[in-house]
């Protein structure tokens, strides 16, 4: 998927290409360094909100192009039959050649459909959409560069048991702590989807950079992860679920 987004982001005038799911969660992106993940998540939510309203009039929408005074936001529906909806958004400035970009976007949408369909067809537990590209090195120029995307390759199997977590670098201090960590990730995933793994990994790395997670640190971790849950109901549900697994 990263290669597909790279092709788009290499176009003159394109500042970012983002794939989001039906809830506005970013599942993959490639963008200038100024467009970091939290920012793109906000854009994803705003865009999905707009699309949801537009669907009331144009249920079968294929493309939406928003023209701004200093750029464009080109959105394409990655419809996959009855499967989950995804959208491709291309952020562009005035230099964009719309005709040229239109062809590139059409090609990209076709390829993204294929990738997403292949993932949907994979066996359960192995088909989680990989988390998004991580921001890379600083921009070499003032305008910003498009960093190489890095997927972390996490899969649910890394969280599936007390002994299978070393590959992710997210070991608990003991088996029980690892189980709690896995449960916490799955609880968060109910609200944020596959991004949960990245969020948990980043939170653990940030909070305890020099030691493995211990189950008695769970309240601190939960407080950190709640920052990703804008909806109070989601946060409440997350706390309840985690409280059950930590007993």
């Amino acid at each position: 998927m990263d290669a597909i987004l790279k092709t788009l982001s290499d176009l003159e005038g394109v500042n970012g290409a983002v794939v989001t799911d039906a809830r506005g969660q970013v599942v993959a992106y490639r963008a200038h360094a100024v467009y970091d993940l939290p920012l793109l998540q906000q854009v994803g939510h705003a865009t999905v909100t707009a699309i949801d309203s537009i669907k009331l009039l144009h249920e079968d929408w294929e493309s939406i192009s928003a023209q701004f005074s200093e750029g464009k936001l080109l959105i394409r529906n990655i419809a996959r039959g009855k499967g989950p909806e995804y959208t491709l958004s291309v952020i562009a400035d005035a230099r964009l050649n719309v005709s040229f970009a239109g062809v590139a976007i059409r090609v990209a949408v076709g390829k993204l459909k294929t990738v997403l369909e292949a993932e949907a067809a994979a066996p359960l537990g192995m088909a989680v959409r990989p988390p998004i590209a991580a921001p890379a090195a600083a921009a070499p120029s003032g305008r910003g560069s498009i960093p190489d995307g890095v997927t972390n390759g996490l899969s649910w199997s890394e969280f599936g048991g007390s002994s299978g977590m070393s590959a992710s670098g997210m070991n608990g201090v003991d088996a029980a702590s690892s189980v709690v960590l896995a449960g916490c990730t799955k609880a968060l995933a109910r609200s944020v989807g596959p991004m949960a793994k990245r969020y948990v990994k980043e939170a653990v790395s940030m909070l305890w950079p020099d030691r493995p997670f211990s189950r008695d640190q769970l309240p601190v971790l939960v407080a950190e992860l709640e920052k990703y849950l804008a909806n109070p109901e989601d946060a409440s549900q997350f706390r309840k679920t985690v409280a059950k697994i930590s007993v």
């Binding site: 939406i64 192009s65 200093e70």
Partner: peptide, 16 residues
């Protein structure tokens, strides 16, 4: 979305 991305004010939206 445009504000967040620094794209300026919205001029028009084309839906196909």
């Amino acid at each position: 979305a445009g504000d967040i991305l620094g794209l300026g004010s919205l001029d028009r939206v084309v839906i196909a």
